[in-house]
Write a protein that binds this DNA or RNA. Structure first.
Lengths: 233, 233
DNA sequence: CTCGCGATAATGTATAGACAAAAAGAAATC
DNA sequence: GATTTCTTTTTGTCTATACATTATCGCGAG
């Protein structure tokens, strides 16, 4: 591994692990060049790469700072439903119907976490202007994000977006008919078409959350854009 | 604009416009440093950035080459249904039901192309093991891709993937109930839940294709992965 | 003709230094 | 006290050079 790669990796892992919190300032290039005993260009290359990757933000004279978790830099927005509904001028509300700490082994979901890991199980309904638009069932790795167990939030997705940067995610998107319980919660008849999104996110290799969301057809659409992204410049 | 940015931009635009074709070799760093009258590090920075962005591939001793159109490097795969169905061990077939050259102004679809542009309108059904799985309605910019008008293909999506690299795409994903005509084509009852994908692609700023696909719930799922991609290294 | 091997041409990384640009913070002025 | 101006710190870019790395190409031996 080359030196600049090592410097980059050092800070990357500290940022991803949370040792360096969002907003925190990194040492100056001067300091790092003494610390690693190398030329400034070498340090600069490493930090510039981190900046291009969106992990840090650099400001002249001020310094280099760990970037705040980015919502929009990824190819597909991880939607913060609250913000989206508000952007359409509707009133948003999330009604929590379940909040319980469970062992991973007891969770009725296949998720690649160790059975002894504590999970916070959450479920509830998203409302736009008091009309139900989505049903959500979520598990959060309470070992990785202990704060959430006591946290107050208006919606779990929004809270996570603000507090826990994710570095990796996958999504599975299907269409499904609402089953009895789901249909009842969403106040539609059984068999109504829904958009089903299952998503898992990680910070590094550490699982953060698994969520299954069921959107009423017509109430929501997913938009994705692929191409030269602003974050890659 | 800095010099290295300018060098990068020069080649980026030539690659995206197709002036530099995939596989073609770029000048060596030596040549470029004479051409632009600068140091090699400056050229190197520009080319390394292009390499990190996945636009070129660099090989020691061999040189720098325009990367081949990448199907899988983007965050979400633009699915080639034929390949996916085949991967599941099923027999794939596309039944073309319409193939007609129309003026953009006459197309019953809102798409941001000039009204006089000739479009090839295609529609048909995707079968897996002789069971219909999706209905597709597509327009292709015949001015940008004249070859397709005469082309033989087993599926329009597969043909485009192989022949026309796209640089930008967006997608709109919703759930919908199959309407009468659609339900009939897919051999299900009206109101059956479907996954609806509308997608547009561009090469540079030139529109390539617009497609609306309707998948039967259960017959198909969309998978996306977000994270440090192989192309960004 | 084939295989292996070395010369060579290309990229990859690093150095030390220089100047530019921006912006925060301090000082001077109104 | 508010505004302007100056200083200084920190990043941004570029230069010229050096050496490392490696895959390709051509040549020679078998």
């Amino acid at each position: 591994m080359t030196l600049s790669e090592r410097i980059r990796h050092d800070f990357e892992s500290r940022i991803l692990s949370g040792t360096l919190a969002p907003g925190e300032r990194l040492p100056t290039e001067q300091d790092l060049m003494e610390l690693y005993g190398c030329a400034r260009m070498t340090v600069n290359k490493a930090l510039s790469a981190l900046s291009a990757a969106g992990l840090v933000e650099r400001r002249r004279k001020a310094g280099t700072f760990v970037a705040r978790p980015r919502v929009h830099s990824m190819a597909m927005d991880i939607p913060d439903l609250g913000a989206e509904v508000a952007a359409r001028g509707q009133a948003y509300r999330f009604a929590l119907s379940r909040r319980k700490l469970v062992r991973a082994a007891d969770a009725a979901v296949k998720w690649d976490v160790n059975g002894e890991v504590p999970l916070l199980e959450l479920s509830g309904i998203h409302f736009a202007d008091d009309a139900p638009m989505a049903w959500e069932h979520r598990f959060v790795n309470a070992a990785a994000v202990p704060e959430i167990v006591e946290a107050e939030f208006s919606s779990p997705g929004g809270w996570l977006l603000e507090h826990v940067p994710w570095t990796e995610a996958d999504a599975r998107i299907t269409a499904a008919a609402a089953t009895g319980a789901e249909a009842k919660a969403l106040a539609v008849s059984a068999g109504a078409p829904c958009l089903c999104i299952e998503r898992r996110t990680w910070r590094g290799t550490e699982p953060i959350t698994y969520v299954r969301q069921l959107f009423l057809a017509g109430a929501y659409e997913l938009n994705a854009h692929f191409g030269p992204s602003a974050g890659s410049r």
